[in-house]
Design a binder for these strands. Structure first.
Lengths: 274, 274
DNA sequence: CTCAATTTGTTCGTATGTATG
DNA sequence: ACATACATACGAACAAATTGA
């Protein structure tokens, strides 16, 4: 039994779909670059240990998606024009977060409201007596990339219902100077799209997603803001600075480094076998 | 046409898998709580607009996963004891990172070495003239959860080959007091398992993964350590403190909060329709 | 205790989709 | 393109366990 068939046992998703998703990732991750000829069907069927027809079905899917085009007698190629990726950079600091989503302002769109559950908080803050539930989809270039579910303490919402419905709730919250925040935090776990999210985000069912949860607790220990955000997995990028010596002229140095790489002799790699 | 069927058009994922993923999420999100009886097969087949057998297949999957148990004549129930998950908590600070992976020490295991590509650095640091390539799989409770590919500058490696092969390279690196680090950072993007990773991590092909890249640059601007780590998506959890007022007795407060929740009147949710 | 209602479990037959060689 | 085998999905009917009147 091939490795893929073992993977098949685990997921019960049709083989050609699985193969297609692997090929798609190679294109999206630029491992197969635009215009490049991809391996022949024979090579692919050897790599994946599947039948010829199965590979063809996978390639067919990507052709329909406009990622590949095939030419009889020549081969299969990655299409040239790939739209540049839009990344959602996750913030690691309150002020950065507020600044970032400030720009999101007009992107909020209402979605058929499903009667969602209250959602318990797992260990941070007491729930407020009443919440207002807001739901929106985030768009960029006409493409959905995130679904936001917000529970906002009703007492906060009442202060200015208009502003809270027209702007990101967190931004309005940050503007209220008299609200004293004890702590705010964000967690991220990786999930996969359920049918509803797949529909809203226009991705395949089971496609990777980033599930972010942001909770703001006021000075009384009340969770006044609870947001559950689901992003398409392919738009999320997180950058963490672990360590930095003072006087870091990072941007400038980086640019210079890049030029160096091309001129230098190729780096040698020694594989260490234990 | 139902939403599920639309999702089917897009992904060609079998219907009963889609239903299963919806049910699974209801359990994991606590919308269906432990011990609770879930709707009957008849109700579910009405809700999802699928045949009886299809719902049964979905329930069957969750039974095999140990999330549900069924009793003829009574109904189907959510199991009580949820096994606590093992999370890989991503570090957001150098010292925390080192402390964390210190404990990983004995988990490193050698894997069939594939002649991997040199991997270019995208903007941070010049490559060293020669790297040593190390590869390992991380285990927890006998289950693989991460694959690590490390490029370590050969000049660093030579200082103590034994230690570098027997311990996490980053820990040994941190111990070398004479190595001055200019900066270190980590990035995370979400990907999906290719055939090789699916095999190593024992997950389905295309299953969500976390692709972490950690780069350490020394005072000369040389990237002395480049690690590409692929984690199973379901074990990664990232916690970001956005904001915290001084004198936060978080742990104690949390414990008290939890008790409160049970005694208080249920929180009301008002759905806001724009 | 029995009966009826409820609910899961099983089995057909049929049609279509998936995967191999 | 074909033949074969198995998976998926439907609808319908029936069997078996549980509950409560």
């Amino acid at each position: 039994m091939s490795k893929l068939q073992k993977a098949y046992e685990r997921s019960r998703v049709p083989l050609y779909i699985q193969v297609a998703s692997v090929l798609r990732q190679r294109i999206e991750s630029k491992r197969w670059q635009a215009g490049q000829k991809i391996p022949t069907l024979v090579e692919l069927e050897k790599e994946f240990h599947v039948a010829r027809v199965t590979v063809r079905q996978a390639v067919e899917i990507l052709r329909e998606e406009g990622l590949l085009f095939a030419q009889q007698g020549r081969g299969t190629f990655v299409v040239d024009a790939m739209t540049p990726r839009h990344w959602v950079k996750l913030a690691t600091d309150w002020n950065v977060l507020i600044d970032m989503i400030k720009e999101n302002v007009p992107k909020r769109i209402k979605v058929e409201s499903s009667p969602d559950t209250p959602k318990l908080v797992d260990g941070e803050g007491k729930p407020a007596p009443e919440y207002v539930f807001l739901r929106s989809v985030q768009f960029k270039n006409g493409e959905p990339y995130g679904v936001v579910n917000v529970y906002l303490a009703d007492s906060i919402f009442r202060r200015n219902p208009r502003r809270f419905t027209e702007h990101p709730a967190l931004v309005v919250l940050a503007e209220c100077e008299d609200i004293r925040i004890k702590h705010a935090h964000q967690t991220l776990v990786i999930g996969s799209a359920n049918p509803e999210m797949a529909d809203l985000l226009k991705v395949a069912l089971g496609a990777p997603t980033a599930e972010c949860r942001c909770v703001v607790v006021d000075e009384n220990g009340i969770a006044i803001y609870i947001a559950d955000v689901t992003y398409r997995g392919d738009v999320v990028k997180l950058h963490i600075d672990l360590f930095a010596r003072r006087r870091s002229r990072a941007a400038i140095t980086r640019a210079r480094d890049k030029r160096h790489i091309k001129n230098e002799s190729p780096t040698r790699i020694r594989v260490l076998s234990l």
